[in-house]
């Protein structure tokens, strides 16, 4: 990529005038637009192609078939896991939206350097290793974890509880915490995009702080925040490790099901079909997010 970019730069500085469409320029254009397109599209296309291939006795026969998709839509357990995962991601995104909005709003209301310091702090988990974060969550929620120790020390419970680990609550808690920074940043940006003068104008027109929030801040920041939450949902959809590691026997998600087809069953066509189902879902969500974001910009 770097060499392609520098070739384009060199072209504009020492090459023939811009209006001269030299063959070299066309090549550079092709490289600049083509290489990333190919690099992104090629693997996706191969997935798509694989999902229509027939596999018999562990060997891909090369015949085209819809059987892989049929298998998904007819299988109770894969459908169940798929919708369970979508629901989980939705809940995680909703929690991230809710908590993320509150945190972003509080940070946004601050002034001076504390504001950016806190924002930086809230984004810091993004640079932490993801597995480390899961382990950290588990050491908080776990049987002899921080939460239990705290509750026991404060006399609320007598023996460590398994209420916070290896169940759906744990999955939602852990994922919400892990994905919160992904929510905080877009929401903060959505708030930051609201011109200060609009708030002044609202106050000037007689709105009290609560009215300003409801009539100006919320409607203007909500679309961007929802778009941010949808992206959290997209990331959460693909995460199978967190549910696996904190969800106990209820931590099975669609990503893990896809993985099992590739890594364990060696049934790539079926795995690819499952992956395409997830991909279509993700694309739909991203489309929805950008639609909301665009509408927000226009409005």
């Amino acid at each position: 990529m770097m060499t392609v970019v520098s070739a384009e730069l060199a072209d504009t500085s020492v090459g023939p005038p811009r209006w001269l469409a030299s063959p070299g320029k066309i090549v550079v254009r092709l490289l600049v637009y083509g290489v990333p397109t190919v690099m992104i599209l090629a693997p996706l296309m191969s997935f798509l192609a694989y999902s229509f291939l027939e596999q018999k006795d562990n060997i891909v026969t090369g015949h085209l078939t819809l059987a892989n998709y049929a298998a998904f839509f007819q299988s109770g357990s894969y459908l169940y896991v798929f919708f369970g995962t979508v629901k989980l991601a939705f809940v995680v995104a909703t929690v991230a939206l809710f908590l993320g909005y509150i945190i972003s709003y509080l940070i946004w209301r601050l002034e001076g350097s504390t504001r950016y310091l806190l924002l930086l702090l809230s984004a810091l988990p993004l640079v932490m290793n993801y597995v480390v974060k899961i382990y950290a969550m588990r050491s908080i929620l776990g049987f002899n974890g921080f939460l239990n120790s705290f509750l026991m020390a404060s006399g609320i419970i007598n023996a460590p509880s398994k209420l916070f680990i290896f169940n759906q609550t744990a999955v939602m808690l852990a994922m919400a915490v892990i994905y919160l920074p992904f929510g905080i940043l877009p929401i903060f940006l959505a708030l930051e995009r609201i011109p200060q003068s609009l708030l002044s104008a609202a106050a000037d027109l007689g709105a009290k702080p609560g009215q300003i929030f409801l009539t100006v801040i919320l409607p203007l920041s909500l679309p961007g925040s929802i778009a941010g939450a949808l992206f959290v949902m997209v990331i959460a959809l693909g995460d199978y490790l967190t549910p696996q590691m904190v969800g106990g026997s209820e931590g099975f998600t669609f990503g893990r099901a896809i993985w099992s087809q590739f890594g364990m069953a060696f049934n790539w066509p079926f795995g690819a079909a499952l992956a395409v189902v997830l991909l279509v879902t993700v694309i739909a969500l991203i489309g929805l997010a950008s639609l909301i974001a665009r509408k927000a910009r226009l409005g």
Partner: peptide
Amino acid sequence: PIFRRPFNTVFQDYALFPH
């Protein structure tokens, strides 16, 4: 407080509510 003053302001950037 600002919201109780019987004045209204026309801002340099108009500050119209875009929504």
